[in-house]
């Protein structure tokens, strides 16, 4: 059974008013336990509206959202539980820190889950460990730490609920390259350690290429592609026509093939293309 399933999910903003606009139309999708899904689409394509349905922040205008087979909006109890099962990290989450100390901020979710003090403490330390927030920061005010650290604290606050599904909306926006890489590694580590399902929303084709196994592409409130990164990035013209792009590496690989250097189509990260070129040099051709 898929962990998440949507059936004919449709969302209309300001229904019945002159500003009525259809943000999502008839979305049918299944996401399996443990998948790493990248979500891309230009601003306004519907991806944020979509992810907000997955933990019940928005109610479908039509259709259903199922988690483990149950309609999350069918009872008050389920809608309450879904908030802990599906953790949503918004864009620029560092603006949402509000507690007096880093420790209290990370523990906010587990406290709301009515866990024991000991369990809360365990989860705070575990979550902080995943995102690389040292315990020496626990008693500091979130206002005293750097932007990169704030972002980690905010992500830890969601991870501390041990969600089965972790959704991150542009977790690396505005971070320097080292910060981006380390946050992406933290997310991969979390998934490896817990088997959680990860949904990553990003405008960076390079980031998405590095870590997703499946790419879902939104345009105009519809899913227009749903495939492996290799298949999606092989359609550069189509992606560009809907305001997206391919990784620079894909462009290099395409140009190489035009120059009769036949690197395989499946190269979309630097290391893949490097390996493909090295094996061509040796006379082989592998992917």
């Amino acid at each position: 059974m898929p962990i998440i399933k949507t059936e004919a999910l449709t969302h209309v903003y300001s229904k019945g008013s002159p500003f009525e606009s259809v943000a999502l139309e008839n979305i049918n999708i299944e996401i399996a336990q443990g998948e790493f899904v990248g979500l891309i689409g230009h601003t306004g394509s519907g991806k944020s509206t979509f992810v907000q349905h997955l933990n019940g922040l928005l109610l479908p205008t039509n259709g259903r959202v199922l988690m483990d087979g149950a309609d999350i909006n069918s009872s008050k109890k389920l809608r309450h539980e879904i908030r802990f099962k599906v953790g949503l990290v918004f864009q620029y989450p560092e603006y949402q820190l509000f507690e007096e100390t880093v420790y209290k901020d990370i523990s906010f979710g587990p406290r709301n889950m009515k866990l024991s003090k000991q369990e809360i403490d365990e989860r705070v330390r575990e979550a902080a460990g995943f995102v690389g927030v040292p315990e020496s920061l626990f008693e500091k005010s979130p206002l005293e730490i750097s932007g990169g650290q704030k972002r980690r604290v905010a992500i830890a606050g969601v991870i501390a609920m041990r969600p089965d599904v972790l959704i991150l909306d542009e977790p690396t926006a505005g971070l320097d390259p080292e910060g981006c890489e380390s946050i992406l590694n933290n997310i991969s580590d979390y998934r490896r350690a817990t088997g959680a399902t990860i949904i990553l929303v990003s405008h960076s084709m390079e980031d998405i290429a590095k870590i997703s196994e499946r790419l879902i592409v939104f345009d105009g409130g519809h899913i227009v592609m749903d495939d492996s990164p290799m298949e999606v990035f092989s359609q550069a013209d189509r992606l560009r026509s809907i305001g997206l792009d391919v990784p620079v590496v894909t462009d290099i690989a395409t140009r190489l093939r035009e120059l009769s250097i036949y690197v395989p189509e499946c190269c979309y990260t630097v290391s893949q293309l490097r390996d493909a070129i090295l094996s061509l040099k040796k006379g082989g051709s592998s992917c």
Binding site: H42, T43, A173, G174, H203, M205
Partner: peptide, 13 residues
């Protein structure tokens, strides 16, 4: 100052 940090690929271009 980082005028493209919040933009999608088309916006960045």
């Amino acid at each position: 100052d980082e005028p493209t940090a919040m933009l999608d690929p088309a916006g960045r271009h």
